[in-house]
Structure formats: C-alpha cells, structure tokens
Design a protein around this nucleic acid. Sequence first.
RNA 1: UCCUCGAUAGCUCAGCUGGUUAGAGCACAUGACUGUUAAUCAUGGGGUCCCUGGUUCGAGCCCAGGUCGGGGAGCCA
Length: 504
Amino acid sequence: MYIKDLGLYDGKEVTLKGWAANKRESKGLVFIIMRDGSGLCQAVVDAGKVAEELFEAARKVTLETSLIIKGIVVKDERQVGGYEVQVSAVEILQTAVDYPIAKKEHGVDFLMDHRHLWLRSQRQWAIMRIRNRIIYAIHQFFQEDGFVQMDAPIFTGNACEGTTNLFETEYYGEAAYLSQSGQLYGEAMAMAMGKIYTFGPTFRAEKSKTRRHLSEFWMIEPEMAFYDIFDNMDLIERFLRRVVSEVLQTCKTELEIIGRDTAILENIVKPFPRLTYDEAVSIIKGEKEVNGKNAITSLETELEVVKKRIDEIHTEIKEREEKIKTPGMKKGEIGFNQAKIDKLKQELDDMEEQARNIPQWLNSARTFEYGNDFGGSDETVLTRLFDVPIMVYNWPHAVKAFYLKRDPNDSRFARGVDTLAPEGYGEIVGGGERETDEQLLIEKINEHGLPMQAFEWYLDLRRYGAVPHAGFGLGLERLVTWICKLPHVRESIPFPRMYGRLLP
RNA sequence: UCCUCGAUAGCUCAGCUGGUUAGAGCACAUGACUGUUAAUCAUGGGGUCCCUGGUUCGAGCCCAGGUCGGGGAGCCA
C-alpha cells in the first residue's frame, strides 16, 4: 500500500509505512505529514478517537521518525494529494532525534554534506524521479529504434587524449585510467551491430568548479553505421524531442514540485536550428541577428536589467527592514518580512554574481577569434537568443577531436556537431561523423602526438570494411539539469562527485 | 592554474566609523490552543566569531599568510 494509490481506497482502512516529513500539533489533534517514497499525505490523530497512549506516541513523533499508521482514507481537497488518513493506530519504528535538515532553507555546503538525507526532501525526490524517467525514455527511444545497448569498458590502458584530465589508477601493476569516453569502442561495436548505444559512467579529472561540471557523470553514446552528419543531426533532434515529451507527459507532478516553467519544454516540437560554425560565430560577434535579436546588444540590455534589479532589491530590503522596526508590529508579520528579506538577499547575491560575469562574457564575445572553439560564455551568449536547442556543425578541424571526418567540400572544417540547450545551459550533446580515411587518421594521430600503437585496433576498423558512420555523446546530468532548469548539475545526480568532494 | 565573492549559535543570517555583557529568525525543550498547511503564542538552554601571526589601550570588524566553500575563466558532456 503506497500513498500514491490512496485514491483507490476512499473510505476504506489502509496501513501506511513511512517517515514523518512534518508534524503540526494543537490541543487534541496531531497532524503528521507522512512520506513513503511514493508521495505525501496528512495523517490526523484525534485524541477523542484513539487511546491515550497512542495519542501521546503521536505527539512525540519527530521529523523523519519512521512509523506505521493504520486509518481510514478521507477525501479532502485541501490536502497534498487530495486525501488524508484518519488514524486509528500508530506504531513507531524508530524515533529520529535532531534531524539536521530543517524545514527552512540551508546553504549549499551544508546540504552537500548531508546529501544522503537531502535526497529525502520533496524537491530532490522530484528531480530524481525525472532523472529516472529520462533514463527510461532514453532506453525506450533507442530500443524501439533498433539500437542495441553495448557498453564500453571503464578501465582503459592508454591515455588517448592526454593524461591531464584522466583519473589514473592501477590495473594489476600496470598504469590504467578511468574512461572519459566510450566513443572509439562504440565505433567498433557499431561495425558489429549496425546501431548501438552505450550508457555508463565517465570520469574527467578536470579541476572545474562551475555549475556545469562533474568529475563522474553518466554518458549515453550512440554510434550508427551508414549515418552521415546530417542523419546524425536528425537522430539527435528526434531523440531529444522524444525524451522531453515523455517527461512532459509522465512527470507533471514532479515538474510542478520543482517549479519548472514547461513553456520552453513544450516548444521542443519545433525544429532545432542548424547553424554552421561560421554562422554561429557571426551571431556571437553581433554581426548577424536572430529573429531581430543581437547577441551583443541584448546581453548589454540584460546587464542593465540586472543592475536595475540590484537597485530595486536594495531599496526593497531597506523598506522592509524599516517596516520590521515599527513598534507594535505583529510577530507573524515580522517573520513574513524577514523571510522576504532573506529571499531578496539571496537573489541579490545571484544578481551581483551576474553583474560580475556578464561583462566578462561580453568581452569574450566581442573579442572572439575566428577559428577558436566556443567557451562556456560564448555558448551562453549564443543560446540566449533561441528558445529551442540549436545544433552547430562544421567546426574548424584543428579545435576538434582527431577522429572527426574532414568536410569533403571544405577541408578547413571537420564534421562535428554540438547541440546547445536553450536558457543558457550550453552543450548537452557533442558528436559528429567519423573519419573513415586511414591515411588522414594516421596524420591526425601524429599531429595530436598520440601513441600510434594504441590506435592500431582502431585503424583496423578502417582496414576491414570501413563505412561512413556517425554518433554522439550525451551527458545525462546536463540533460537532467536543463530539463529541470536546475541552478547546478550537482542536484541532477544522487551523489555528485566533483572537484573537492568525495563524501558522502 | 588564474580571477572573484565569502566563512559569526545545530541551520539561515545581522553586527554601523575598531569600544565595554555578540544579536534575530528557524530548529530543539517545556507550556497554551480541538483543523493545522514552513501553524500560532509564551518561556528557556545554546558561541573556539575558520586558523596562525600582526597593528592597537582595545579586534567579530583593520593588515599579512593559510585552510575550507560559492561563482567564473581555461577544459569539457
């Protein structure tokens, strides 16, 4: 019996096993908000209807105490979930003393130290359920489309793209590294199976402290034989559309809990703009407009808006602080204003952060040099102009991975494609068509200073029945972060591993 | 590695130009209230002001170095 099914038992007696998410009390009545993993529900213990010792036990229930209750389901529109339970029996399993996560807001560091408990809170519950649904939708999409899941190894013996961002470990006395991509193995598997996808953990020892980076994250890497870059883009678009639509259809409650504005997600039915690197660069530099919007001037406007908001917040805080000091003010009203002030101060911190960052981004966009890869700020500048994901393809070959196919029409470019999420979330997918020409690959491997011997097996794929093929890599946590519009990737995975944090 | 912001009660924070006994709200405990929605009201306990050194008659506040954390750059999904 789970809380989510209470509606099926209207008027009947049920037994619920769970935890106390909250408790309120008045004379003769105890309200316990039960949480069982499937949902929330209010349980009412009435002194007049239960034995005295039962009522006393209910009164002593603390936050996150585990308990079993028995009672009658009553429809009540005012309650979370629309039902409440009139309790006839309570059994305490274990009384939780001083549960550290209070009902009020906490700081990031404190919450991260208590991640194992934080996961119980409603917002984290909703995010994890959306993450689960995204994973399920990914499998649904690929399986229904004839893909075979084939996973790449996690231990790798050679440092294919340099050792600086690889985690080194030891493998029976040999140096080994944790995988940072299953890409090359994916190509081999696609030659065996036609269409495959990998779904596994990936490790990057990048000392990055930003809202987009994790040291351990989950990546989905499909690889398809006989696909070119355009087939690849079609697939990316169809894939993202399917995942978003599944989430919209099946996670209404969860999206509501996290307060996600779904308007942008509903938009995902529209085609994704496909821009060449050249076009994208002119947009970033403000030489080309998108729907009448200029990247540079609209960011300047944004900066003005932010500055104005900072002023507004300052005056509002001052007003409310004055208000609190007026004599005779009720305690409730003071509390209300204090809460508002706390919220405003947090917003102020964010705004001031933005006011510091935007000028840097503007500078980066203005001075962008043709031929460079995009940085995080360039992606932000670009994607702010769109309300759907965009795909940027045909990159200068020098800035992209060695295995990307040289554009047959223009040898300056490689057939890579990056998919950038809207709302400033940046790159969620990176991929492209693979080089099939053995000689060009050998040149590239030498150019990058990579050990040829380690790539012999990879070159075999070009010697024995090479075919055009393409694929992409999708960072699960970045996708979850964007779909949920989270302020930081750390909330998109149960136990984030990031620079400076290995516990819990 | 670099830039930038920060560290005060269990939690979130205030603490003015350096001044005598460091504050609030929440949480917790006790009590009041028979329908609460972060319930409310009253009372109470609770402090290594991150560390080390310096300036000063006097440092939570100023200076130097360090530790830890937030955000950004680089790198990336």
